[in-house]
């Protein structure tokens, strides 16, 4: 049964900001992402892409409509429950790398897994190392997170997003502040990960080339979905 459920589905999600003036940023957004799909979201600046992504990541619960993750509705779940769901099912890559500067690269990758507690510390370390190696930054593992380059940070963030084997990785302009070479590297990594099968990708981007190479591009306009890309 869960095999045919989409990984992620929204039903008429709307979001309104009231401060300082009331603006409806999202207007009945309904779409879904299937298993293994690599979906990009494009749209003019300010059309609500980031806002949508925060809702999808379960960090923002203040919206109307319904969000289903792996077939289950998140409506009415308390925050602790959502935290757990988030660490189990979702990996998140921010536009700015957002690592914990006081921890080592390795530790940054390990923390979400230690929190989830699915594996013991040694196993977690092993898995983290594995992912860092896949992303070709295994040699940076013991450096402090603020001692590596921007492109490397972005890859660390991806390794962290992968650590709990999430169903879906979401990215808000993950290549936004990388040069085209690093941007290509990150794209290839994401592409490769989704090609492995089960894992889906949902990436907000302004980069046309990037979007073209994904399975499907959703275009947003003023809080609505203008094109589902299929």
């Amino acid at each position: 049964m869960s095999q045919i459920d989409p990984v992620l589905e929204t039903r008429k999600v709307s979001k309104t900001f009231h401060d300082p003036v009331t603006v409806q940023v999202l207007k009945e957004v309904s779409f879904s992402v299937e298993r293994g799909e690599f979906v990009s979201i494009m749209g003019k600046s300010g059309c609500g892409k980031s806002t949508l992504l925060y809702i999808l990541s379960t960090m923002d619960t203040d919206f109307q409509g319904e969000l289903l993750l792996d077939g289950k509705s998140t409506t009415g779940m308390d925050r602790d429950h959502l935290s757990r769901l988030r660490s189990e099912k979702i990996g998140f890559v921010f536009q700015f790398h957002y690592l914990l500067p006081e921890f080592s690269v390795l530790r940054n990758v390990m923390l979400p897994a230690l929190k989830l507690g699915r594996y013991g510390p040694e196993e977690v370390e092993h898995r983290a190392m594995e992912r860092l190696k896949i992303l070709e930054i295994g040699d940076q593992a013991l450096k402090r997170a603020n001692q590596i380059s921007g492109g490397q940070k972005q890859r660390v963030a991806i390794a962290r997003a992968l650590i709990n084997d999430p169903l879906i990785i979401m990215g808000d302009e993950p290549t936004g502040n990388l040069d085209s070479k690093n941007s290509d590297i990150v794209f290839d990594i994401l592409r490769g990960l989704s090609a492995e099968g089960e894992r889906s990708m949902l990436v907000v981007t302004h980069d046309e080339d990037f979007a073209k190479r994904t399975d499907r591009t959703i275009v947003m306009d003023d809080g609505r979905i203008a094109d589902h890309g299929r």
């Binding site: 935290s83 757990r84 988030r86 660490s87 923390l111 929190k115």
Partner: peptide
């Protein structure tokens, strides 16, 4: 603040 946001975004709860 940033670290707190990251911890929360990666699965740590308010209680943590």
């Amino acid at each position: 603040l940033d670290s707190i946001a990251i911890l929360k975004a990666t699965g740590f709860s308010g209680g943590d």
